[in-house]
Computed example of a mutant assay.
Amino acid sequence: MRLITRTMLAAAVALLASSAAWAEVSVTYVKPDDYTDVSRSQIERERTLKDFSEYFAKLDKKLPAGQTLKIEVLDIDLAGRFYPRRNGEDIRIMNGGADWPHMHLRYTLEQDGKTLRSGDDELSNMSYQERLSGHYSSDPLRYEKQMLDDWFEKKIVPKVAAR
């Protein structure tokens, strides 16, 4: 009985110690009610930001252990344009013209309390409908996620690999 307790205690301590080495991505939304293009509906806006938060959280798997990426979203302009409908629900139309996705981010990549990289970036994808994406066509944010993937691979991953 005592051996099991010690083993479980040792496992818990090891787990806590290793959790400090995990990579982490955190995101905050600065004044989301003022964003260029997120639904007027409070429910839809919350759903969109939750979807983005879940997606940003998955980026931690691409970071080395012990690194933290802090992202502040300053503006979002989704692909396409919203058009109001009589029933109160907006419909998003994407025509591939001047309606490409755009995001304004501020970020800091840290390890052991030291800043490895930081910046203030304007992301956009003018050819958003002309490229294949690794995201499902049923994903309403597939073009924005593709744009975020490009940004992450270009700005964050090369710096991570250089360490």
Results as ranks from 00 to 15, higher is better:
10 A>H: 02
52 F>H: 04
136 Y>T: 10
118 S>L: 09
20 A>L: 07
74 L>R: 12
129 Q>S: 07
106 R>S: 15
128 Y>I: 08
140 P>N: 08
119 G>A: 06
90 D>Q: 11
113 G>N: 10
32 P>D: 12
146 Q>P: 03
76 I>P: 02
22 W>S: 11
40 R>V: 15
75 D>I: 15
48 T>D: 00
118 S>T: 08
49 L>F: 00
96 G>A: 01
11 A>I: 15
23 A>Q: 03
89 E>V: 08
9 L>C: 10
131 R>L: 13
128 Y>L: 05
55 Y>G: 00
72 E>I: 13
72 E>A: 15
43 I>C: 03
136 Y>E: 14
134 G>F: 03
138 S>H: 09
14 A>I: 15
43 I>V: 11
46 E>K: 09
128 Y>A: 14
107 Y>L: 09
14 A>P: 04
63 L>F: 00
39 S>Q: 04
128 Y>H: 12
132 L>W: 14
90 D>F: 06
41 S>P: 01
143 Y>E: 11
18 S>I: 11
116 L>E: 06
54 E>Q: 13
44 E>C: 02
146 Q>E: 10
32 P>L: 14
74 L>E: 00
113 G>Y: 03
59 L>P: 02
59 L>Q: 06
38 V>A: 07
70 K>C: 04
28 T>A: 14
35 Y>S: 08
15 L>F: 11
101 P>W: 13
122 E>I: 13
28 T>S: 13
12 A>V: 10
60 D>G: 06
93 I>T: 04
146 Q>G: 02
140 P>W: 01
12 A>T: 04
107 Y>S: 15
31 K>T: 10
96 G>Q: 03
42 Q>H: 09
117 R>C: 07
39 S>H: 06
138 S>C: 07
47 R>W: 07
64 P>R: 03
68 T>R: 04
72 E>P: 13
123 L>G: 14
57 A>T: 10
71 I>M: 12
105 L>P: 01
78 L>V: 14
89 E>M: 06
139 D>W: 01
87 N>L: 02
99 D>T: 01
106 R>Q: 15
75 D>Y: 10
74 L>M: 04
62 K>N: 11
38 V>M: 08
14 A>L: 15
46 E>T: 08
43 I>P: 09
92 R>E: 09
40 R>T: 15
45 R>P: 01
41 S>A: 00
106 R>W: 06
108 T>Q: 05
24 E>W: 04
11 A>N: 05
87 N>G: 02
31 K>V: 09
57 A>F: 09
122 E>A: 13
22 W>Q: 12
121 D>E: 09
51 D>R: 03
113 G>L: 01
37 D>W: 01
69 L>H: 05
22 W>V: 07
